[in-house]
Amino acid sequence: MNNLAPERSVQPDRSEPLDALRGLAISLVIAHHYFGFRLGEFGVDLFFVLSGFLIGGILLDSREQPDFFSSFYGRRAFRILPLYWLLLLIAPPDRWAYYLFFIQQVPWVQFGYPVHDPTFVTWSLAVEEQFYLVLPILVFWLPRPWLVRVLWCGALLAPPSRWLFGAYLPHPSWVVLLPGRLDELFGGVLIACFMREYCRSRVAWATLALVPPLCDIFHFALFGSTAPLSVASLICCMAVMSAAATDAQVMFRPLIWMGRRCYALYLFHMLVYSAVSGQTWSAVVAFAIVGALAEISWRIVEAPLIGYAKRRFVMRSSDDHPSSRVGAPTHMPDGLVVETKHK
């Protein structure tokens, strides 16, 4: 285990600003898919940064508990698998065995991307699961200085990864493979690190944060082959950091409602849309149906399973560890699972 001294959890059990930000993200994604709203693509980037921040915070605050891995993966399994398996059962994709192991990008790179298949949205869930395999190992084994260095290396190498994928792999590999999204996922984790005072020099961190966007802009200006996603990543990191640092109540309650039901909304929104496509006001009808399904899913499936997983797999913060110098327990909220479509 790493030799870091325990630190206090700094994230509230439920944050309305973060829930609202998730609601904004899923609203943008659905608006993009249903109504062709081009700026809706930024909902994808916001989802990844939020996920990195929330999952990173959970892992950083609980890394010293004895059942670190079993608790984390137990909670993730209860949160992710039931609805995911239901989607695969309702709309079984080609080469479904790859989907079971969250490596559907493997046949896609070989045989082409099924961009019009309702299950194509699961590419980001696959990215998330691959991220979940890597990050807990890094957090558990690396001392604080090395953890921060590895996170920054991953974030800085994301733009070159996208450039290489865009040049040598079929479209849209540069968007849907994990190395190309590490500036967003690791960027979220770095925000969690920053809020736990892992940062020794704010000037150095600010300078490093500007490197990927500047390199991406320069590459785009020269070649124009891949969009400068690092710019969107930086903007989303700033939004998440601002939301996490405030305790203000959010007045626009529909965003909070959508944020807390975003998993079902995203998994099934394209499936519902494809089922009613061609009907009058199909986008509005699809949104009403998927909203109703998300509410039913939340009340009957998701909320009960999340509650059970929290009781069965307790993610104790460092404050709860016997060696901690601070005794007040604080529990982190569940992380975000995102499901997005390519740009």
Score class of each variant (00 low, 15 high):
M1E: 14
N2M: 05
N2R: 15
N3V: 11
D13F: 14
L18K: 00
L18N: 01
L18W: 00
L21V: 12
R22Y: 07
A25E: 00
V29W: 03
V29F: 02
F37V: 14
G40W: 06
V44G: 03
V44C: 10
D45I: 11
L46W: 00
S51W: 02
L54W: 00
I58T: 08
I58F: 00
I58L: 15
L59M: 08
E64A: 13
P66R: 15
F69G: 02
F72E: 07
R75T: 07
R76H: 05
I80N: 04
L81N: 10
L87M: 01
L87Y: 00
L89P: 01
A91M: 07
P92H: 08
A97C: 03
Y98I: 01
Y98N: 03
Y98M: 06
P107V: 01
V109L: 15
G112Q: 09
Y113Q: 06
V115C: 01
V115P: 00
V121P: 01
T122V: 09
S124N: 11
L125A: 13
Q130W: 11
V134P: 03
L135Y: 09
V139S: 05
V150Y: 09
L151Q: 08
G154H: 09
G154T: 05
A158R: 01
A158P: 02
L164D: 04
G166A: 11
S173I: 09
V175K: 03
V175Y: 13
V176T: 13
G188T: 10
G188I: 11
L190T: 03
L190H: 03
A192Q: 06
A192N: 08
R200Y: 07
L210M: 15
L210K: 05
P212H: 02
C215M: 14
I217P: 03
L222T: 13
G224K: 04
G224R: 08
A227R: 14
V231E: 00
L234D: 06
C236L: 06
M241L: 15
M241V: 01
S242T: 13
M251S: 15
I256V: 10
R260F: 04
C262I: 07
C262Q: 13
C262A: 15
H269P: 03
V272P: 12
V272S: 10
Y273N: 10
S274K: 07
T280R: 10
F287R: 04
A288S: 05
R299W: 04
L305A: 02
G307T: 02
Y308H: 12
R311G: 14
R311A: 09
R311N: 10
F313C: 04
F313R: 05
V314H: 10
S318L: 04
D319A: 10
D319L: 02
H321A: 12
P322F: 08
R325P: 01
V326D: 05
A328G: 01
T330G: 14
T330E: 12
H331K: 10
M332A: 14
G335N: 00
L336T: 08
E339G: 10
